[in-house]
Amino acid sequence: MSPIPGHGLAKGLAVTLRTMTRRTVTQQYPETLPELPPRSRGVIGLFEENCTVCMLCARECPDWCIYIDSHKETTPAAAPGGRERSRNVLDRFAIDFSLCMYCGICIEVCPFDALFWSPEFEYAETDIRELTHERDTLREWMWTVPPPPALDPAAEEPKELAAARKSVDKLAAEARVAVQAPPAPAAQPASAAQPAKGATAATDANTKDATDPKDATAAKDATEPKDDKGPKDDKGGERP
């Protein structure tokens, strides 16, 4: 109970009057584009080189809006006497954005970091059927994915970087100790190319391009393909 009757009424009027004298927060959208934070949920982009057609995303999607077609191909054995390997080849990857509710579960669940949030949001269509976007469009959106924000100055090094450095160190140590020990056949071409990259990344671990998706996944790919902790931590900032 205020001392003067009508005090509350006057206060209400004061609030609106004060707001009127301040700057408005409206952005004139088509003229000035919004500055979106890096982790905006605009649309889902696909980095299809990373996709193994494991179907986890399609299965976890709450409203079944991801369509994936694939076929199997067999690659001949790399070494004589080796086993033939079969791998899945992606034929179609489409997301129906008229169904998608932007929950982001597909991105969370992808073990190989093939799906990313892009802040791109101007993809309205006049026909609802045109909202089903195929892999080429999804790939186009991939290039609009911004690098995640830099870590705090004293933050712990990202897990995959640490892992990459560890493997680089290990490889270097192995190379120093003995030449006769043969490395694993499959990892060899990758490890020949990647350590350099991982090393450059490691030097400036706290800069933003350190966790550029391509670099990060490549580094992870080089080290431990089955370790699904890496991609999780890469996007750890998204979890509340």
Binding site: T16, L17, T19, M20, R22, T24, V25, T26, Q28
Partner: peptide
């Protein structure tokens, strides 16, 4: 206009 500005809009 007045209503908009009182609500921080344009």
């Amino acid at each position: 206009k007045v209503m908009a500005h009182m609500q921080g809009r344009l």
